[in-house]
Design a binder for these strands. Structure first.
Lengths: 181, 181
DNA sequence: ATACAATATATCAGTTTGATATATTTGTCA
DNA sequence: TGACAAATATATCAAACTGATATATTGTAT
């Protein structure tokens, strides 16, 4: 079997929902999947070309007017490859939180710096939670569809975690106040 | 100012706590920081050498018996560089959860696959939570120290989030049962 | 008309991972 | 005591991925 990186499956997964251009894939990653996965153009376009050479996706010219546009759709072989990966156990779940890093090393700058980072984090979380709650509400009306059920579960995950982040922010600030007494 | 990547500050941060070898740095990342940050030898050793050339850390031969050992300690210049970074706002907090990815694309394999991934995730979270609670308990006795206070806050973050992950696992399984009726 | 935002593809240097190589010391079981 | 595995320790490299940038067209608002 050919080389397979994680990116392959992200693209195959998205194309298993519907045919898309590289640009549309990027947008979907930046909206729907942003809470648990990301990718850059520098990996999207080359991987799309590689998947086509392997016969896992099919290119189709979808240019209109003068706008160049290449639509990709998944093949049966691509679907088989995706299904195989989906059945395998997860290799790695990973958090990369710069906020936690700056907090952990924060003794160099004191509790004042820590408080600032926590507050900024809190604001960001509030924003994300607002978006996620909107997603969940909108999704409510599509829950007879299987694809949307899976989507719904991931949105619920996002809501749960951001709510717990906000709780932590509150408790951490209280704890710092306690220490400052 | 010279080139600066995130890895620079991770190493400077760890060395600001105490002098260490590359191997010890890796161990600390795999234990204490594993819940929010990771790094591989392939970035640790080269970065350590680069930081030495820049005068941010100092190399010291700490070989004993026949065992080669290089201990690194942070310089004042290195501390200044670290502090500067700590004051800057966070650029990126990122979750990369393969579990969520497989769940999101799971309509290809059906709810049975989703349930399996959720269950495996649940088991892993229970394990992590156990470790984190041990950390928190042990930390309790060192909380007069500033470094440990910052450490404590990050452990609390880990506990909060893993608890919410477990709640989500439970609710997601209930939801799936509901859908299966 | 003109400028700005959005759409669209593509590439590349720099960063990081994951695997592997190499070698020594320490612990453990028989 | 000897043998074997596990832990300690440094280092390198191909492959993967990011973040930035280049290029060009279309739609929108002023």
């Amino acid at each position: 079997m050919a080389n397979t990186k994680k990116m392959d499956y992200v693209l195959l997964g998205l194309l298993s929902h519907e045919p898309m251009t590289g640009y549309e894939i990027k947008k979907r990653l930046d909206t729907t999947l942003r809470f648990f996965w990301g990718a850059s153009y520098g990996s999207i376009y080359p991987t799309l070309n590689q998947l086509e050479k392997e016969g896992k996706v099919i290119k189709e010219d979808a240019s209109s007017n003068g706008r160049e546009k290449i639509s990709y759709s998944i093949t049966e072989y691509g679907k088989d490859s995706l299904k195989e990966w989906l059945k395998k156990p997860v290799e790695k779940d990973e958090l990369r939180y710069e906020t936690l890093l700056k907090l952990f090393f924060g003794n160099e700058t004191g509790m004042e710096g820590a408080k600032e980072h926590i507050e900024r984090f809190e604001e960001k979380c509030k924003g994300e939670l607002l978006i996620l709650n909107m997603f969940a509400e909108n999704l409510g009306q599509y829950l007879q569809d299987d694809t949307h059920k899976h989507y719904y579960l991931t949105v619920k995950f996002g809501i749960k975690t951001y709510e717990s982040y906000l709780e932590w922010c509150h408790e951490a600030k209280e704890q710092i106040k306690e220490w400052e007494k």
